[in-house]
């Protein structure tokens, strides 16, 4: 469902509509916040994430060996965190969004039994072709952005934080290119 271009009623800067998952259009503008996503950090999630990412480090599946290494329990591996952060952002913008970059830093470990709440905020939006403000690129005129396989929509940077009971498990930024408005990518 490609959504049509939305105007910028508030005049707050850039704001384009993109296909948000199913039918609703999601306006994207600097400062926009993503709905939080709560992830139950279960033992199953930690282990299945580790195995799905081909990471057999014992600290991600064997609690006893994790303890021997000074950790109170097994903990989520960085690849799973990376996957969850990516999913969080692509879930928000819909399947036609293109992930450009995911950069994360880990802090407090994700131990079983904890809950991680992902939150995100759009910190930058750049129109295709480098136009600086909410140009409504409903036409085909938008030149391809420098990124390789782009379908030419706006590029947005989302600041993501995943907080658990111990503090910030992950902080990072995700860069996405939105499908060119008005059409399917």
């Amino acid at each position: 469902m490609g959504a049509g271009v939305k105007g910028d009623p508030g005049g707050e800067g850039m704001s384009v509509g993109v296909g948000g998952g199913a039918e609703s259009a999601v306006a994207i503008s600097v400062g926009a916040e993503l709905a939080p996503l709560e992830i139950a950090v279960t033992r199953t999630l930690i282990v299945s994430g580790a195995i799905a990412s081909r990471d057999y480090q014992d600290v991600h599946h064997d609690a006893e060996l994790a303890k021997e290494k000074g950790s109170p329990d097994i903990f989520m591996n960085i690849l799973t965190t990376n996957g969850l952060v990516g999913r969080y952002v692509t879930d928000h913008f819909g399947p036609t969004v293109v992930l450009r970059k995911v950069a994360i830093r880990l802090g407090a470990p994700n131990y079983p039994g904890d809950t991680m709440v992902l939150t995100g905020k759009v910190t930058a939006v750049e129109q295709a072709g480098g136009s600086e403000s909410g140009s409504e690129s409903g036409s085909e005129s938008g030149s391809e952005s420098g990124a390789g396989n782009g379908s030419g929509g706006a590029t947005a940077v989302v600041r993501v934080v995943g907080a658990n009971g111990l503090g910030a498990h992950v902080t990072g930024t995700v860069t996405v290119t939105l499908p060119k408005s008005g059409g399917q990518a």
């Binding site: 480090q57 290494k69 000074g70 591996n77 960085i78 690849l79 990376n82 293109v98 992930l99 450009r100 970059k101 995911v102 950069a103 994360i104 830093r105 880990l106 990124a147 390789g148 396989n149």
Partner: peptide
């Protein structure tokens, strides 16, 4: 002797 991953930065150029 212990290892922990702290940062991961990935750029995706083509699917």
């Amino acid at each position: 002797t212990s290892v922990v991953a702290t940062d991961c930065e990935q750029e995706y150029l083509r699917p």
